[in-house]
Simulated assay, not measured.
Amino acid sequence: MTYVTGLFLIDANASALNNLGAIEGERYDNSTGVKVIRTNEGFYPYISAQAFRYWLRQTLQQSDFGWKSAPVYREEKIAYTDANPIKWWDDDLFGYMRAPSKRESAKAKREADSSRMGETETTDTITRTSPFRVSTLVSIAPVRPTNDFGVMSRQDGDPVPHEHQFYRTTLQGLFSLSLKSSGTFWYKKKTGFRNLDDVRIDQAKAENLELLEDEKAYRLPKDQRLQRITSLFEGMAKIEGGAKLSIHYTDVSPVVVILAVTKGGNHIFSHVIGENKGRPEVNLEALKESLQIFNDEIVSDIFIGWVRGYSEEERNKIEAFAKTAEAKTENGKEIKLSHPREAFKNLIAEMKKPENSVWLE
């Protein structure tokens, strides 16, 4: 089973990308704090995986990649998507949980809601484990958030004071995409793998999806699966989002990425980037070890994207290392260095080669 395994860095120059709301005990009632992990070493600002996935969904919805987003429905205190991975690309790659209420009152309310025209009928509880997994994005080094004081003074009367926190750091995240699971929908009676109920199974049959009888699954054609996967990575390369952009304007697209197609879902690059005085530092020994130990599990070249001008000395280290014999695995895979957007494009091009279609099996 193969995965796209990736690491990425975001340069948060002066940012408050994920906030926790009001801070109790501060001098002003409207003091806003940032999310941090508190350790003995200090405070590590972070961005939740939920926030990052939200940014990515929004970027994909607003893109020209042809992305097809599922509608979201609301019932009192719960909300859910259409939960149809055959039709909607984000239901496929981001997963879902759908357990519709069987109460007559809830059913009548759904039927009376004109905004739900075209909704896929759901006859049973269905869940889908997300093929796309992403970590919490965490600062590579501890920092002390800055408290910024401001006032609202455009109105008559006394100015209204307010305060918010922000920080300067580099945030690191990990992600993984199961290539087999992308575009493959199970109907097993198992949590996470009961992707299809009877209605969706009938749709799979009507659209002539490939039946994997031994696995109790249906699968989209490879060209459709690749279209969804490549759109996801195009969105990651150009991702936008985050809080306080009107006053901090942080570009959250990756300044560094490390990408490869690997066997197994364990992350092989998680210790390649360290830090020195708060700045990222490439651990070449860790990279060499990964290329040696995981030689049999790396099935593509290693695509590294590094923006010129960002920690230029570390980029130069990668560039020099890539020219050595140690930068190649025993099975001939090598490091290819470029801009992060180019790294995603090169990975996509590799995936589209006919000889690599086996990665989707």
Results as ranks from 00 to 15, higher is better:
residue 26 E to D: 15
residue 27 R to M: 14
residue 28 Y to Q: 12
residue 30 N to K: 14
residue 31 S to R: 04
residue 31 S to D: 12
residue 32 T to G: 00
residue 32 T to A: 07
residue 32 T to R: 08
residue 32 T to W: 01
residue 35 K to M: 11
residue 35 K to E: 09
residue 36 V to I: 13
residue 38 R to F: 07
residue 39 T to G: 07
residue 40 N to T: 08
residue 40 N to D: 14
residue 43 F to N: 14
residue 43 F to T: 02
residue 43 F to C: 09
residue 45 P to Y: 07
residue 46 Y to P: 01
residue 46 Y to G: 00
residue 48 S to I: 03
residue 49 A to E: 15
residue 49 A to T: 13
residue 49 A to F: 10
residue 50 Q to F: 01
residue 51 A to N: 06
residue 51 A to G: 06
residue 54 Y to E: 10
residue 54 Y to R: 14
residue 55 W to H: 10
residue 55 W to C: 13
residue 55 W to F: 15
residue 56 L to V: 02
residue 57 R to P: 00
residue 59 T to L: 05
residue 61 Q to M: 12
residue 61 Q to P: 00
residue 62 Q to N: 15
residue 63 S to A: 12
residue 63 S to G: 12
residue 63 S to H: 06
residue 64 D to G: 15
residue 65 F to I: 11
residue 65 F to T: 14
residue 66 G to V: 09
residue 67 W to Q: 03
residue 67 W to I: 01
residue 67 W to D: 03
residue 68 K to E: 05
residue 69 S to Y: 00
residue 70 A to W: 02
residue 70 A to R: 03
residue 71 P to A: 08
residue 71 P to Q: 08
residue 71 P to V: 07
residue 73 Y to D: 04
residue 73 Y to I: 05
residue 73 Y to M: 04
residue 73 Y to Q: 05
residue 76 E to G: 01
residue 77 K to H: 10
residue 77 K to V: 10
residue 78 I to H: 01
residue 80 Y to P: 06
residue 80 Y to R: 12
residue 81 T to H: 03
residue 81 T to K: 04
residue 84 N to R: 02
residue 85 P to R: 01
residue 85 P to L: 03
residue 85 P to V: 03
residue 86 I to P: 02
residue 86 I to V: 12
residue 89 W to E: 14
residue 90 D to Y: 01
residue 90 D to F: 01
residue 90 D to P: 05
residue 91 D to F: 04
residue 92 D to C: 04
residue 93 L to S: 05
residue 93 L to W: 05
residue 94 F to E: 08
residue 94 F to R: 08
residue 95 G to K: 10
residue 95 G to V: 07
residue 96 Y to N: 11
residue 97 M to N: 10
residue 98 R to L: 13
residue 99 A to L: 10
residue 99 A to T: 11
residue 100 P to W: 06
residue 103 R to Y: 01
residue 104 E to I: 08
residue 105 S to R: 09
residue 106 A to F: 04
residue 106 A to V: 14
residue 107 K to I: 15
residue 107 K to F: 04
residue 108 A to L: 12
residue 108 A to T: 07
